[in-house]
Nucleic acid binder design. Structure first.
Lengths: 207, 207
DNA sequence: ACATGTGAACTGCTTCACAGCG
DNA sequence: CGCTGTGAAGCAGTTCACATGT
């Protein structure tokens, strides 16, 4: 398949959210123009994004809301359940475990891992907190698909190397560092410090 | 000033982090090539990024680590303190208040706001939690520069409208929605659901 | 008549390659 | 000689505009 730009995938995500909203309100069709307005983009962009995957609309009419939503779920791989583990049971890890958005979209959290013996053996919103030492033993058994890394910056690279060695191919990283991984592993980084500095730059350099 | 791409600003942020690391280890000069390797980019990219703001290097030698770090702090607007308020004292808000990265970089959290009377009047890591009703009264007095929005998706747009009406020009949004704001307001959105769906897409469509 | 699907034009970011200078 | 700084070339993503199908 042709390589799809990151920005395209992000927009597909957004379109799906809007469609689910429309679906909830019982609307049955939608035009590229309405989707565009809602997503802060253009109708041509919406049509181009969708055209990479097929022709889902009816000319002169628009798109069937439930059909397009289904196709997007399929494209994004959201028809199946993904198994997730969280590495680091600190404040951010705890907030993520409680976050409803995960489960809603088919991301099932199996367990959290931490090095702190105070936390190990306890639960976080019904999710067990296990010793990080168990990681290598558990991964082949549980076969998680995605690891969410919420450990301090200085431990992040080491933890990621263990996660990768255990065979996990997708990582969501909350540590403010540039992670080195093999090319068959996908990393997405959420870096709050960087976003804040972007705001600082915008405030400083606005005319 | 010439318009600077978002991707450029993000890289400047990253360079600064690396420089601070080098500074801590007592190194005094660095080449664009080393910065590039560390940041997963190319030396030409590093030089081009910096060239938008001036000529900070010495030909044949490289860049002075402390000098370049200083220039980057200046460019990014990190020489001054920014005042931050957090809207929403839920799990994510609480995690952010505890996050050391904020204070380290000169972002000073003034207060958190919430609608829940159970939380109002309490403290979060020494930060007062105030009633959201006070927002309009407090902003002119405290003059916060940045609002961090961690309220549920369904309340986010309404809250942001109040924040904008109160005169705040920079917003860091954690709600998984597309916010509508006037063009003189900068919004950065951190959308975990979208990043996860990006991973789902990558896992589904890898060859 | 209306809205999609898409090649072509365009815009802007990245990479190249080399002149310039310490 | 080495590394920066920068026009020029290359490339990728966005926008345009219209043929196409209902």
């Amino acid at each position: 398949m042709k390589r799809i730009a990151d920005s395209t995938v992000r927009r597909l995500s957004a379109y799906l959210r809007f469609l689910e909203d429309f679906e909830g309100r019982g609307l049955s069709t939608i035009s590229s123009d309405e989707l565009a307005r809602r997503g802060g983009t253009t109708s041509a962009q919406v049509r181009k994004d969708l055209s990479f995957f097929g022709s889902f609309g009816k000319r002169g009419l628009g798109y069937s809301v439930p059909e397009l939503a289904g196709r997007l779920r399929e494209i994004l791989g959201l028809e199946r359940q993904w198994k997730v583990i969280i590495i680091g049971a600190g404040k951010i890890g705890a907030a993520l475990v409680a976050y409803r958005g995960f489960r809603q979209r088919g991301f099932h959290i199996l367990a959290a891992y931490d090095a702190n013996p105070e936390k190990v053996g306890k639960q976080l919103e019904g999710i067990p907190v296990r010793d990080i030492g168990q990681l290598e033993r558990d991964v082949p058994k549980d076969t998680p698909d995605i690891a969410v890394v919420t450990v301090p910056a200085e431990n992040a690279q080491a933890v990621v190397e263990r996660v990768v060695a255990a065979g996990i191919k997708a990582i969501l990283n909350f540590a403010p560092v540039q992670l080195q991984v093999p090319s068959d592993v996908t990393v997405k980084t959420v870096n709050m410090a960087m976003e804040l500095e972007g705001l600082s730059f915008a405030l400083t350099n606005r005319d």
